[in-house]
């Protein structure tokens, strides 16, 4: 196989989309950790990161840094809105799975609103730095850098800040955390804001590759969930490994056999792995039902 012509582009684009999927997976996990809810808005946040970046920087002509900060802040707000509208009201009845419906409804609202008010066609995303070309273009390595930055920042936060430890505590044993007097509700809201920012960062960093397109939301929802399912719920490292593997697999199949069959292959692999290991490849079963 010709390294320069085939392998390198596969590697570059595979790692890039894989990093985006991995970050969406982290978005799912961050929301899940404090609320035990998987939210369909995770992928939409990624889509918004691309659309808002394009809106602020290209259409409204803001400087890069201002556009970036505004995008992340707006996505964090959407995260908090998710918590208020679609999560908190159904937390009391988690076993009825109403959250699947409430977050799906909110995700559809976000997606439809974007389609109508933004565009139903993919719109260009600004060239951010103009660094690199070919397989080393920034559009390939920016998502990877964003992914590495996020993981590093999350690890630092969990190891070295009290808030980070409190997140871990709430996620491990919500009841014990409440009995200690930890502000469980505020921590949950904060985790949704954080998830929003991570999702927004994924979409912004991947904007040059995936463009500002409303339908990315649905794609991100599914392909971002695959690494979560494979890696085990709430397991960020599993999501990163799963996301990068998924990206490489998908892009290799894309180059070698064509896009549709790549999608089919991903889907079939997803179902088979899940049926064989419902807890994910790195997850553990803990639930007692009776």
């Amino acid at each position: 196989m010709d390294f320069g012509a085939t392998l390198l582009p596969i590697l570059a684009s595979g790692l890039a989309v894989g990093a985006i999927y991995a970050l969406i997976g982290v978005t799912y996990n961050t929301m899940y950790s404090t609320s035990r809810v998987m939210s369909f808005t995770s992928g939409q946040l990624g889509m918004l990161g691309g659309v808002l970046g394009s809106l602020f920087i290209l259409r409204l002509g803001m400087p890069l840094i201002v556009g970036f900060v505004l995008t992340i802040m707006a996505c964090a707000i959407v995260g908090v809105v998710t918590e208020f509208i679609a999560v908190r009201p159904v937390l009391k009845s988690l076993d009825q799975h109403l959250y699947v419906l409430s977050t799906l409804a909110l995700a559809l609202m976000i997606q439809q609103f974007t389609a109508i008010e933004w565009s139903t066609e993919p719109q260009p995303f600004p060239r951010l730095f103009g660094l690199g070309s070919g397989s080393f273009d920034e559009k390939f390595w920016l998502p990877v850098a964003a992914c590495a930055f996020t993981i590093g920042a999350l690890e630092l936060m969990q190891r070295h800040t009290l808030v980070g430890r409190a997140f871990l505590a709430v996620s491990e044993d919500n009841f014990a955390a409440r009995s200690l007097g930890l502000p469980e509700r505020n921590l949950r809201i904060a985790s949704y804001a954080l998830a929003g920012a991570i999702g927004g960062l994924a979409g912004f960093a991947g904007g040059e590759l995936m463009l500002a397109f409303f339908a990315n939301g649905g794609q991100y929802n599914f392909y971002g969930f695959v690494p979560v399912a494979l890696g085990g719920l709430g397991n960020n490292r599993g999501s990163i490994v799963g996301g990068l593997a998924l990206g490489l697999f998908q892009q290799a199949a894309n180059f070698l056999v064509g896009g549709v069959f790549a999608s089919v292959a991903v889907f079939i692999a997803f179902i088979i792995v899940l049926l064989a290991a419902p807890q994910g490849l790195f997850g553990t079963s803990t639930a007692r039902r009776v």
């Binding site: 399912a229 999608s263 889907f267």
Partner: peptide, 28 residues
């Protein structure tokens, strides 16, 4: 079939994925 083994959200996702793929195949 996935509903027989998977949790609710997983099943919802797998049906969603199936819908996406059928449309893609119809196109291609």
């Amino acid at each position: 079939l996935p509903a027989l083994r998977l949790r609710t959200f997983y099943f919802a996702m797998s049906t969603l994925g199936f819908a996406t793929i059928v449309t893609q195949i119809a196109l291609a």
